[in-house]
Design a protein around this nucleic acid. Structure first.
Length: 154
DNA sequence: GTTCTGACA
DNA sequence: TGTCAGCA
């Protein structure tokens, strides 16, 4: 069991590092429901950009960010927006996602068991820094708990 | 087998 | 935007 924990510890950062993901055009197409023809056209229009590659290969490579962008565009297109509008909405949507991601990245301190349930440690929020705010997902019902910081945490 | 560009519908 | 040709 201990060995498994060590292995997980080793690979978790890698699994969470979405930015290292690389996709070929057919993969992006399958994952998003957008045809390869469309992907090349959107690129020509400047809505998406394949990664600039250092080697001599011609085949396009996409990063995770582009996958998200394409997927979002697809959603807006399915809602009836035209390409230029969908691209515009995708851009601002991406900006909102970044705000959210930065917030979570900053606020998330880990998972702890509180009241017998896994709780998200969101750090201290009082000026003195003596209390910690926990968030618990109770079958879809979110509730918050404030606990005094343990001695060894200070 | 896959991707690329260009072209036609 | 789909599809096909002719390459690499």
């Amino acid at each position: 069991m201990r060995q498994i924990d060590n292995a997980l510890e080793k690979i978790m950062p890698e699994l969470l590092n979405l930015e290292s993901f690389r996709f070929r055009i057919s993969e992006i197409s399958t994952m998003t429901g957008v045809s390869t023809r469309q992907l090349r056209y959107w690129e020509q229009k400047g809505y998406i950009h394949p990664m600039t590659r250092t080697d001599q290969q011609k085949a396009r490579m996409y990063d995770f960010h582009t996958f998200v962008a394409v997927r979002i565009m697809k959603v807006f297109l399915d809602e009836g927006y035209r390409l230029p509008s969908a691209a515009e909405k995708m851009t601002s949507f991406l900006a909102d996602i970044n705000v959210f991601r930065d917030f979570v990245k900053q606020a998330f301190r880990g998972i702890e068991i509180v009241d017998g349930q896994p709780a998200v440690d969101m750090g201290s929020f009082d000026k003195a820094g003596k209390q910690i705010l926990y968030g618990i997902n109770d079958n879809g019902h979110i509730r918050y708990i404030v606990k005094d910081k343990k001695k060894d945490q200070q």
